[in-house]
Computed example of a mutant assay.
Amino acid sequence: MGEAGSDFGGYLIDREVARGGSAVVYQAHHPTEPTRPVALKVLNEVHRTPAWQARLDREFEFASFLNHPHIVRMYRHGRFWLAMQFVDGGRATRLRTLEDRLSALTQIAAALDYAHHRGIVHCDVKPANILLPQDFPRSGAVLTDFGTAHAVVEDVWRRRQHNPEVSLPYTAPEILLGKAPSAATDEYALACTAVELLTGSPPFTADDAAELVDAHLRQLPPPLAGTFGSATRAVDLVVERAMAKFPARRYESCAEFVDELSRAIADPPG
């Protein structure tokens, strides 16, 4: 399984494109549509359990419910696999110009606000889950991996809160405190992502998980020293609000945050 030409779920594998801790992603195609590549995500043998199947089902169902140009499109899924839109340009961290980075952030902010208005919180916003097509910026960035997403109308967080799946460099304080996620949770993670795209690293870095947790709970994001010249302090203030420890103090939407960030960068104080 996994060799070029082999069959999985009715799809023919062309090549491996990514390998993670729980799954392998292949470029593949369906025999009836040889010219349309798909991304075929297949769980590793050790992760073919009911819990991981439920996560895969969640990823498919939530993304399928959302119809947005900057949210990954789902096609089919089955036991231990799913087929989705193939995005061929790599991760958002490959963007080289400030204009392109802000453009990608604007697109992902719009996708997140769209999901939030439909009662879904992504819960794992980070650069690795923002993919780019080769023709970016014409087609725009794509938000992927809804495997840990949360439907705010469901009363399921209480059953999951003792062992939430998190990406620590981007995790909002409320999640670390065992509280339910909200749209503001994604905004916090988007702010961490923005800092990484603009500076090369997320706001808080540490080798020890406890240090990262403490930073998210107690520290202000470090100043973006000199990154934008005279605009730096204005940018710092925008990031600080989007990463406020209390969700109610953050911006009303992800789009508002990115708009304010773009404005602070473009219009430094006189």
Rank of each mutant, 00 (worst) to 15 (best):
N67R: 14
N67T: 12
H68C: 04
M74Q: 13
M74I: 05
R76S: 11
R76G: 02
R76M: 04
H77V: 02
H77R: 15
G78Y: 06
G78P: 00
F80D: 15
F80P: 00
W81I: 09
W81M: 11
W81V: 08
L82P: 00
Q85T: 10
Q85E: 15
V87C: 12
G89P: 01
G89V: 09
R91D: 12
R91T: 15
A92G: 02
T93A: 08
T93V: 14
L95W: 07
T97C: 06
L98C: 03
L98Q: 08
E99S: 15
D100N: 13
L102N: 04
L102V: 09
S103W: 07
S103C: 14
S103G: 08
S103F: 06
A104T: 10
L105A: 08
L105W: 01
L105H: 04
L105P: 01
T106F: 03
Q107M: 14
I108A: 06
I108D: 09
A109G: 07
A111F: 04
A111T: 06
L112R: 06
D113T: 10
D113C: 12
Y114W: 07
A115N: 03
H116V: 11
H116T: 08
H117Y: 03
R118N: 11
R118S: 05
G119L: 07
I120P: 01
I120G: 06
V121Q: 05
V121C: 05
H122P: 05
V125W: 02
K126Y: 03
N129K: 06
N129Q: 13
P133Y: 12
Q134I: 14
D135L: 11
D135N: 15
P137I: 13
P137T: 13
R138A: 15
S139M: 11
G140D: 13
A141G: 10
A141T: 11
V142I: 15
L143T: 08
L143M: 11
L143S: 12
T144L: 14
T144R: 04
T144V: 15
F146E: 09
H150Q: 09
H150S: 08
A151Y: 06
V152N: 06
V153T: 15
V153E: 14
V153H: 14
V153I: 09
E154M: 07
D155A: 13
D155H: 10
V156Y: 01
W157F: 09
R160Q: 09
H162E: 02
N163D: 11
E165I: 03
V166H: 00
S167C: 08
L168Q: 08
P169E: 13
Y170T: 03
T171C: 12
T171E: 03
T171N: 04
T171W: 00
T171F: 00
A172K: 01
P173Y: 04
E174W: 00
E174G: 03
I175E: 01
L176K: 01
L176V: 05
L176M: 08
G178P: 00
G178K: 00
K179A: 01
K179S: 00
P181H: 03
P181S: 12
T185R: 01
T185S: 14
T185C: 11
T185Q: 05
